[in-house]
Amino acid sequence: METIDRYNIRVYALCIEDQNILTLFESYCGKDLLKLPGGGLEFGESILDCLHREFMEELNVKIEIIEHFYTQETFLRSLYQENEQLLTIYYRVKIKDFDNLKIQVPEIKRAEWFPLSAPNPFCLTVDQLVFEKAQHFFLK
Score class of each variant (00 low, 15 high):
residue 51 L to E: 05
residue 58 E to I: 03
residue 83 N to A: 15
residue 108 I to T: 07
residue 13 A to R: 02
residue 39 G to S: 01
residue 65 I to H: 03
residue 7 Y to K: 14
residue 51 L to V: 07
residue 14 L to N: 00
residue 37 P to V: 02
residue 57 E to V: 13
residue 76 L to F: 05
residue 114 F to M: 08
residue 5 D to E: 15
residue 85 Q to L: 13
residue 116 L to V: 05
residue 120 N to I: 02
residue 70 Y to D: 04
residue 14 L to D: 02
residue 53 R to Y: 07
residue 127 D to C: 03
residue 95 I to K: 04
residue 80 Y to M: 01
residue 21 I to A: 04
residue 22 L to I: 02
residue 56 M to V: 09
residue 5 D to I: 15
residue 109 K to S: 10
residue 28 Y to K: 11
residue 71 T to K: 06
residue 46 S to E: 03
residue 81 Q to C: 10
residue 95 I to G: 02
residue 118 A to F: 08
residue 76 L to M: 11
residue 41 L to P: 05
residue 134 A to G: 08
residue 140 K to L: 14
residue 109 K to T: 12
residue 5 D to K: 10
residue 76 L to A: 13
residue 57 E to T: 10
residue 2 E to A: 14
residue 116 L to Y: 00
residue 96 K to Y: 04
residue 29 C to M: 11
residue 80 Y to N: 12
residue 115 P to Y: 03
residue 65 I to R: 02
residue 74 T to H: 12
residue 95 I to A: 08
residue 45 E to G: 01
residue 83 N to T: 12
residue 61 V to Y: 00
residue 83 N to I: 04
residue 60 N to D: 09
residue 102 K to H: 11
residue 95 I to R: 05
residue 89 I to L: 08
residue 5 D to R: 14
residue 116 L to W: 01
residue 85 Q to V: 13
residue 79 L to S: 15
residue 103 I to T: 10
residue 101 L to F: 05
residue 112 E to P: 08
residue 3 T to W: 12
residue 48 L to Q: 07
residue 38 G to K: 00
residue 41 L to R: 09
residue 75 F to H: 09
residue 56 M to Y: 10
residue 17 E to W: 00
residue 2 E to V: 15
residue 80 Y to G: 03
residue 37 P to T: 01
residue 75 F to K: 04
residue 52 H to C: 10
residue 107 E to T: 13
residue 10 R to W: 07
residue 133 K to P: 11
residue 38 G to D: 00
residue 133 K to E: 13
residue 73 E to H: 08
residue 31 K to Q: 15
residue 61 V to T: 03
residue 102 K to D: 14
residue 60 N to M: 06
residue 43 F to I: 14
residue 114 F to K: 07
residue 64 E to M: 02
residue 40 G to M: 09
residue 69 F to G: 01
residue 53 R to L: 01
residue 59 L to I: 06
residue 83 N to K: 11
residue 121 P to L: 04
residue 84 E to A: 11
residue 7 Y to H: 13
residue 76 L to Y: 05
residue 6 R to M: 14
residue 3 T to D: 14
residue 127 D to L: 01
residue 113 W to E: 07
residue 46 S to V: 05
residue 102 K to W: 04
residue 68 H to Y: 03
residue 127 D to G: 02
residue 15 C to Q: 08
residue 73 E to T: 12
residue 131 F to A: 10
residue 101 L to S: 09
residue 77 R to I: 13
residue 30 G to L: 08
residue 86 L to C: 05
residue 54 E to W: 06
residue 130 V to M: 07
residue 111 A to H: 07
residue 101 L to M: 15
residue 98 F to D: 14
residue 67 E to L: 01
residue 117 S to K: 14
